[in-house]
């Protein structure tokens, strides 16, 4: 297994779910350094795990020669996290509502909905190399 590359507040990993825990340790460590409370740390960590799962599975379609990068910063009272993959992206407005009767008991389709519920904002942008997803949450 290759090692994650860490540069300042950015971690870059091969596109595999094996690295979810590396990313989680990295993000939670930095959040603790920001003085974030446990509940907000969990909300942010859950959201990052959702987006990394998606970048690996949907964005990079699990090809391990691609990478996923996660950066974290604090701007004013906001924690700002950017997740990048090399896929074609998606429109978060187009995702079907997991609360609809027909979707309620499905095995999947809740990730982005959960991120939107736990974070203050979610934004998806096309980049030269793929897709970047920016999430923000104000912390005390």
């Amino acid at each position: 297994m290759k090692e994650p590359v860490i540069k300042g507040n950015t971690i870059i990993v091969p596109s595999s779910l094996e690295y979810l825990t590396n990313i989680d340790d990295f993000i939670e460590g930095i959040l603790r350094g920001f003085g974030t409370d446990d509940s907000a740390i969990a909300d942010i960590a859950i959201s990052v795990s959702e987006l990394v799962n998606n970048s690996v599975s949907h964005g990079n379609k699990a090809s391990e020669d691609k990478t996923v990068s996660v950066s974290i910063d604090k701007k004013g009272s906001d924690v700002v996290i950017v997740i990048e993959d090399q896929g074609d992206g998606f429109d978060p407005e187009e995702i079907s509502n997991p609360l609809d009767e027909a979707n309620l008991l499905k095995d999947s389709g809740r990730g982005i909905f959960i991120v939107k519920s736990l974070m203050d904002s979610l934004e998806v942008n096309k980049t030269e190399t793929g897709t970047s997803i920016i999430i923000k949450k104000a912390i005390a």
Binding site: A42, I46, S49, E50, N53, K106, D107, S108, I114
Partner: peptide, 11 residues
């Protein structure tokens, strides 16, 4: 904590 993957397995 768990995420949608965990919820998906349980459901």
């Amino acid at each position: 904590w768990m995420n949608s993957t965990g919820l998906g397995i349980i459901i």
